[in-house]
Amino acid sequence: MDLTTDQMKDACEKLFGDHPEDVIEPINSAEDALGQLMEIFHTIVNEASGNIECLRIKRLAEVGAYLAFDFANYTGSRYETMLERLVEQGIVSKRGKV
């Protein structure tokens, strides 16, 4: 049974209590936050560079930056895929809600 666009939108709102685009927006916010976290770690790496006593801090910050970058890429990719599917179904437009 194929659902109409309105039925899919209504089902999402009933299931999650929000418009489909609002349901996936936290993923986009997570990507932004992880990108900012990566920048913080890069700043720590740069500040700790050249100081042998800060070597452990530098290494931990490098790992943190890598993880933040990796998860930012993952969440960004998932958000784009979900948004694209919503657009393809006519549930949202690329510029916002339909």
Rank of each mutant, 00 (worst) to 15 (best):
K94Y: 01
L55F: 09
V87T: 02
R95C: 13
M1K: 12
I52A: 15
D18I: 10
G90W: 01
E80N: 04
F16I: 06
I52C: 13
M38F: 03
V98P: 10
R59K: 14
S49M: 12
R85Y: 13
M82P: 14
D22P: 08
F41N: 14
F71A: 01
H42P: 07
N51G: 09
A11T: 00
I57S: 12
P20H: 06
P20E: 06
I52Q: 12
L86D: 00
V23K: 01
H42N: 12
N73H: 12
L86N: 02
S77L: 00
K14A: 07
I57K: 13
I52G: 10
N46C: 07
V63Y: 10
D18G: 09
F16H: 07
G35K: 01
I57M: 13
T43P: 09
T5S: 03
E88F: 14
V63L: 06
E21Y: 03
G64T: 00
S29I: 10
G17R: 03
G64K: 01
L67C: 08
T75F: 15
S77P: 00
L34S: 03
V98E: 09
V92G: 00
M82Y: 13
L86E: 01
G50C: 10
T81A: 13
E25V: 05
I27A: 02
I24W: 01
V98D: 08
P20I: 08
E25Q: 09
S93R: 06
T5H: 04
L37M: 13
L37C: 14
I91S: 02
G50F: 12
L60H: 15
K94P: 01
T81W: 10
C54Q: 07
E39G: 14
M8W: 10
M8I: 05
D2Q: 08
I40Q: 11
V87G: 02
D2T: 15
N28L: 14
G90M: 03
T81G: 08
P26L: 03
H19S: 04
I44F: 05
S93Q: 04
E53F: 05
T5M: 02
A68L: 07
T43R: 11
G76D: 00
H42Y: 13
S93C: 07
S29G: 10
A68H: 05
M82F: 11
I40A: 14
I40F: 15
V98A: 10
S49P: 04
T5N: 03
D10I: 12
S93N: 06
T43I: 09
E88L: 12
M82L: 15
L37E: 11
E88M: 13
L37T: 10
I44R: 07
E13M: 10
N73M: 08
L83M: 11
L55K: 11
P20V: 07
A72G: 06
E25T: 08
E88V: 13
G96I: 04
M82N: 14
V98M: 09
Q7S: 10
D22F: 08
A72I: 04
L83T: 05
L60W: 12
D2C: 15
E88Q: 11
K58R: 11
C54F: 07
I27L: 04
A33Q: 07
K14E: 05
H19C: 04
D2V: 15
N46Q: 08
E53T: 05
K58Y: 06
A33V: 08
Y66H: 08
N51T: 14
A11N: 00
N73V: 07
E62D: 06
I40P: 12
R59E: 09
